[in-house]
Structure formats: structure tokens, C-alpha cells
Amino acid sequence: MTTSGTPATGDEDARHRARASRAAARGGLRYLGLLPFLAYVGVFLVFPTFIVVLGAFQDGQGNVSLTNVRALTQRVYLEAYARSLQLSAASAAIGAVLGALLAWALSTANPRGPLRRAASSACAVLSQFGGVTLAFAFIATFGLTGLVTEFLKDHFSIDLFSYGPWLFELPGLTLVYSYFQIPLMVIVFLPALEGLRPQWRDAVHSLGGSTWHYWRHVAIPLLAPAFLGSTLLLFANAFSAYATAAALVSQGSPLVPLKIRAYFTSEVLLGQENIGKALGLSMIVVAAAVMVFYALLLRRATRWWR
């Protein structure tokens, strides 16, 4: 029996090895689809990050130095960071509150209705609307000779610029940033609102609770991690924004991204590119910290939606 069973066992092992090799080959072919993505991430994210980190700790001769990092403690850079953080926090707060209210309104609409689909599509488009186009739109609307500015001045004797060129300073940037922060909040917060189960509201009502009790003791605690995580995402989005501020602001209201641009484009600051890289490194640290907190809050929020 041993002699007759051995060849069968050997054939079975060979078939197992053949199937395993074919499965491994198919798995390798599936991973080949990741190569374009990995190449894209390597060229446009990993390699530039490596160059920024390396240059931040080098002097003009290429020697290892902390001079660039120490320079960030100067007043001019601290003021730029204060403005960037203030702008990011203000626009994130406005976008989070108004976007959450709009997302709640959309969550009550028919998911397959034309209003819901049109609003969702508009938010997807407007959340990516920025740069020179957005800056020009606000200048043409609320600028010194903008459409709304002239209309209010001619018909109601209201001068929007009686207290200065606010559109080209921090208040104006906050308004412009809120334009794409609000629809972005709708996109990232709407799934959390849709995750609220009707059974939870029914359970509160069956126990004698009101709508206020439902929101106070059930909905708001469940939505709080998702809301805070979405707010952090808006903060990171505003903190790293560059094109809109560069098109709207030239010299006033210095921000960290505009300071970095100055070190790579200004003829006055030639040879000091590594300070710009140190500023870029500090932005990477801030953005990474924000995204870590966002990931922790997102993990906490997803416990209830499983």
C-alpha cells in the first residue's frame, strides 16, 4: 500500500505546488498595477520631500548645519506662521460650521432626487475651484471696482473698502478660502451624517426622549469625532494652499507658502534657498501632525458605522 500510495501523494504535491506557483504569479501581476502609482508618489512626493529635508539641514556649501532651522525663530517667520495658522483656523472653522449645516440639510433630502445629486456635484466641483480663477472671480465681484462693490456704492451708498483693502488682506483671504472649504466639508462630512441609523432616533423616542435628547445624547457624540476630523482636514487644506493666496496677495499679509516662493524666485534672496526648504520642512511637520490626529479621529468615528 505504501508503494502504490507514494506516486499518488507525489502527484498531489506537484499539483499543489503548481497551483501555488500560478496563484503567486497572478498575485504578482496584480501588484504590477501599483507600479504607476508608486512611481507617481515617488517622483512627486517622496523625492521632493527628501530634497526639502536634506536641504533644510545644509548650509550654502552643502555642509550639515542647523542654521536654516534656527533662522525660523526670527520674527518675520513667526509672523508668517501666525498669519498662516490664523487664516487656516478661521477658514476651517467657518467651512466646518457652514459645511456641516449644509451637509445636514442635504442628508434630509431624497438621496436619488435631483436636488441632492445637483448639490453633491456642485460641491465636488467647487471644492477644487481655486487658484488664479478663484482670485479673479472675487476681484471682479468684491474688488475695488467689482460688480457688488459698485452696486452697493451706487444704490445704497455703502463702500466696502471704507476701512481699507480688506479683500487683499487676512479677512479677504478668509472669505476666499471659505469658498472652497465649505463644499469640501460637505463632501467629507456627509457620509458621517448618512451613517446615523433611523433606529437610534426611534429608540430615543420610544424611551420618551425628544429630538433634542437624540441630538444631545446620541447624534452629536457620535458625529463629534467625524466633525473634528473633517475640521482638521480643512485646516490642513488651507494651511498648504498656495495658488489662491499668490494670485490675490502680492506683498501684504505674508504667509508661509508665499515666503517659500520668495526664496526660490526673488532676485534679492539668491543663495538662501535652503531657508525656504527649512520653511517647507516645518510645513511638512505641521501637516503630518494634523493628519495623524485626523487619522486617530477617523478611526474612532468609524467604530460606530461598522
Rank of each mutant, 00 (worst) to 15 (best):
R30W: 15
V41M: 07
A56F: 01
G27D: 03
L38P: 12
T49F: 06
L66G: 15
F50W: 15
V43N: 00
G27C: 06
G55Y: 07
A23T: 12
T49Y: 07
N63T: 09
F44I: 05
V41Q: 02
H16I: 09
L29D: 10
L32R: 03
A25N: 07
V64N: 01
I51A: 08
H16V: 12
R15V: 12
V46E: 00
A25H: 02
V53L: 10
V52E: 00
A23K: 11
N63W: 05
G42I: 02
R26E: 01
F37T: 15
F47E: 05
A39Y: 12
V46N: 05
A56M: 01
F50K: 12
Y40N: 03
R15F: 08
R17W: 03
A39F: 11
L35P: 09
L29N: 09
Y40S: 07
D13K: 13
V53I: 07
L32H: 04
V53G: 11
F37V: 11
L34H: 09
D13P: 08
L34A: 15
N63S: 12
V46I: 10
S21K: 11
A56R: 00
G33V: 09
F57E: 00
Q58F: 00
A18D: 11
V41N: 04
A56K: 00
L66A: 12
